[in-house]
């Protein structure tokens, strides 16, 4: 029944039938049939894609796939757009992390990049980055000036979930103790605040769209920092955002946590320097040995 003579219309009918059958099987809780129909549907959809593409060869956007250079953002500044857009993903991430100077998750990297740098950096493109970097390092150690590495957990020096760092940073900064998420959060707020202040002096090179995004990002940090936002004005109106005030408030709370966080991070770093190879220091300890707490079981 899946012959190649099927017209696009016939195929569409079959797709509709498959979807209906799939839903009926889901209602019947028939797991085996659901799996089978999902496969059939998937095959028919691919077939449809091929046929549709064949019938409309002019579909221009099909050319762009994940490995191709990012399309130029309409928001990119007028000057040097092509150059900025052609920056490889790892360099875009490096650029962003260098602004933040703390470990960051893909979502934050994307948001900061979007606010302060030209070109696009979808979070989906960060997914494979860590693996690629490690592979590159292992095939030719230290061939590159820097690597993008995971942050390390203080207790096991294992790779921390989702957090990216730069290999050239001091090890202390790349390690996550119990207080580090808060310290890094507050640090991030100060960095975004000062970036916002200096970028707003750039004039037209920084687009209003990007500025709005930067302000929205800073505000999302400010709501969780005591004293970072002014009092609400009228009912329903959001309090004004003052980057200086956010930065000062973040620094004020930072002073409370810095000492204990520094102690925890440097203890772990010392331990890491004593016990781990360079590769392990960069990409994390995969053996599940627990520091400090081997006696607990």
């Amino acid at each position: 029944m899946q012959n190649n003579e099927e017209t696009l219309d016939e195929l569409e009918n079959r797709l509709a039938q498959l979807r209906r059958a799939l839903r009926l099987a889901m209602v019947e809780r028939d797991a085996a049939r659901v799996a089978q129909l999902r496969q059939q549907l998937h095959r028919a959809e691919s077939l449809w894609e091929d046929k549709a593409a064949a019938e409309q060869p002019v579909s221009a956007a099909d050319a762009s796939d994940a490995s191709a250079p990012a399309p130029v953002s309409p928001d990119a500044p007028v000057s040097e757009p092509a150059l900025a857009a052609l920056l490889p993903t790892r360099e875009q991430v490096h650029q962003t992390l260098s602004l933040l100077e703390v470990p960051a998750a893909p979502k934050l990297i994307t948001a900061v990049h979007e606010a302060f740098f030209p070109g696009e950096l979808p979070a989906s493109r960060l997914a494979s980055l860590r693996r690629d970097e490690e592979r590159s390092y292992r095939s030719a150690p230290n061939a590159r000036p820097y690597y993008l590495c995971p942050a390390l957990t203080a207790d096991r020096l294992a790779p921390a979930r989702a957090l990216l760092t730069v290999s050239t940073w001091p090890l202390e900064r790349r390690i996550m103790g119990a207080h580090s998420p808060r310290v890094d959060f507050l640090t991030t707020a100060t960095k975004i605040a000062s970036a916002l202040i200096s970028y707003s002096q750039l004039g037209p090179r920084w687009t209003p769209d990007a500025q709005t995004r930067a302000e929205r990002l800073l505000r999302s940090f400010a709501v969780s920092i005591p004293g970072a936002l002014g009092p609400p004005t009228l009912a329903g109106h959001v309090p004004a955002l003052d980057p200086d005030q956010v930065g000062d408030a973040a620094k004020a709370e930072l002073s409370v946590h810095l000492e204990v966080d520094r102690r925890q991070r440097s203890e772990a770093a010392t331990w890491a320097r004593d016990r781990l190879s360079e590769a392990e220091r960069l990409f994390g300890n995969r053996l599940a040995s627990v520091r400090n707490s081997a006696s607990a079981d």
Binding site: T153, R156, A158, R161, A178, H179, S180, P181, R182, D184, F185, T188, F221, V223, S224, I225, P226, E253, V256, H257, N285, R286, A288
Partner: peptide, 30 residues
């Protein structure tokens, strides 16, 4: 961000001291 919003809520509602921020992920062991 280490439960930043949650900390703000707990500080507002229960006067959680500002020093208490430690965040311990237990979703995985290594």
């Amino acid at each position: 961000y280490g439960g930043a919003r949650l900390l703000a809520l707990l500080r507002e509602s229960l006067d959680l001291p500002v020093e208490q921020v430690a965040y311990i992920p237990l979703k995985s062991v290594g």
